[in-house]
């Protein structure tokens, strides 16, 4: 059911016009730039919503934050919606403190993210 796309090991799949990208533990190193490139690629290919799933992401450091800020920029430029799912409490607090939550919706699961999108487009 999931088509895995993108460069080497960034996992992503499409659901309608939404793309789900898995942050994994790439985010906190230079390899996080792959995630950003993957997000931009998904936007260019016409996805209107990006859902980044953090289920395998234990902590997010400053590199990760910088990468995510880059993704926020890219999403805003193409007026796409950005949703973060499965963010643990500690990380959610960090995102709140740093102001990322002003630009992104946080939800607890992919399902919730998908239902959020369908609410928005009845």
């Amino acid at each position: 059911m999931s088509d895995t796309t993108g460069e080497s090991s960034v996992q992503a799949r499409s659901v309608g016009d939404a793309a789900i990208i898995y942050a994994s533990d790439y985010l906190n190193k230079l390899s996080g730039e792959r995630i950003e490139r993957e997000c931009k690629r998904q936007l260019e290919s016409g996805h209107r919503t990006l859902i980044i799933n953090f289920r395998d992401t234990e902590i997010v450091n400053s590199i990760g934050v910088s990468i995510l800020v880059g993704v926020i920029d890219a999403a805003e430029k193409s007026t796409a919606r950005l949703i973060f799912s499965d963010v643990n409490n500690h990380t959610a607090e960090l995102f709140q403190m740093l102001g990322l939550t002003r630009h992104v919706s946080l939800v607890s699961s992919e399902d919730e993210a998908l239902s959020l999108i369908s609410e928005a487009q009845p």
């Binding site: 190193k29 230079l30 996080g32 730039e33 450091n61 400053s62 590199i63 990760g64 934050v65 910088s66 990468i67 800020v69 926020i72 920029d73 740093l98 102001g99 990322l100």
Partner: peptide, 30 residues
């Protein structure tokens, strides 16, 4: 992390990119 990055004798371009990410990400600068 930045101290470690600078001290490691790695690729200059990667060092710079990593350092710059750390700087921007420390305060989520856009």
């Amino acid at each position: 992390d930045l101290g470690q990055e600078i001290a490691a004798a790695g690729d200059f371009d990667e060092m710079l990119r990593t350092s710059f990410h750390l700087l921007l990400g420390s305060l989520a600068i856009r």
